[in-house]
């Protein structure tokens, strides 16, 4: 398991990209899957940084990635307020695109791009597990 601990600062998205780039090379993950993994982690971390804290303090967010049995598992742990993206209301495709609330778009993309998503609230922390399927060509 490789992990990266970041601060609640949006500039950290660059470090996440580099972290995923390095791991993709290690696990021979193709560029389409690398894009999907980066996108999902980015969307969830961006949500955490922008909406999850009720104070202006520094917080840490931990990102862990491991791969086994043709799966890649990313976990994101934060100490922000309780938020379960699985309970977030589904992005509404029936309204005009320009009227849709933009906030739900990131979570919609995460649901589309992951094989499975698990949420756990434990010790006052949110733990999200994202599971991606890796094909034979990764």
């Amino acid at each position: 398991m490789s992990s990266l601990t970041i601060k609640n600062d949006i500039k950290e998205l660059n470090n996440i990209a580099k972290f995923i780039e390095d791991l993709s090379q290690r696990y021979s993950i193709n560029k389409e899957k690398k894009f999907d993994i980066n996108l999902c982690v980015d969307e969830l971390v961006t949500n955490i940084i922008q909406y999850s804290y009720n104070d202006d303090d520094k917080h840490e967010i931990e990102i862990g990635i491991e791969s086994a049995n043709n799966e890649l598992i990313a976990t994101i742990t934060d100490d922000g307020k309780e938020f379960n993206p699985l309970e977030h209301k589904v992005y509404d495709f029936n309204t005009d695109v320009s009227e849709r609330p933009i906030g739900g778009l990131g979570i919609f993309l995460v649901r589309k791009k992951t094989e499975k998503l698990e949420y756990l609230r434990e010790n006052n922390k949110n733990k999200l597990k994202l599971i991606f399927k890796l094909e034979n060509n990764r």
Binding site: A17, F35, N38, L39, D42, E43, T46, I102, L105, G106, L109
Partner: peptide
């Protein structure tokens, strides 16, 4: 090379 929902917006 990369776009997220923030970019789409």
């Amino acid at each position: 090379e990369y776009i997220s929902s923030s970019g789409l917006r």
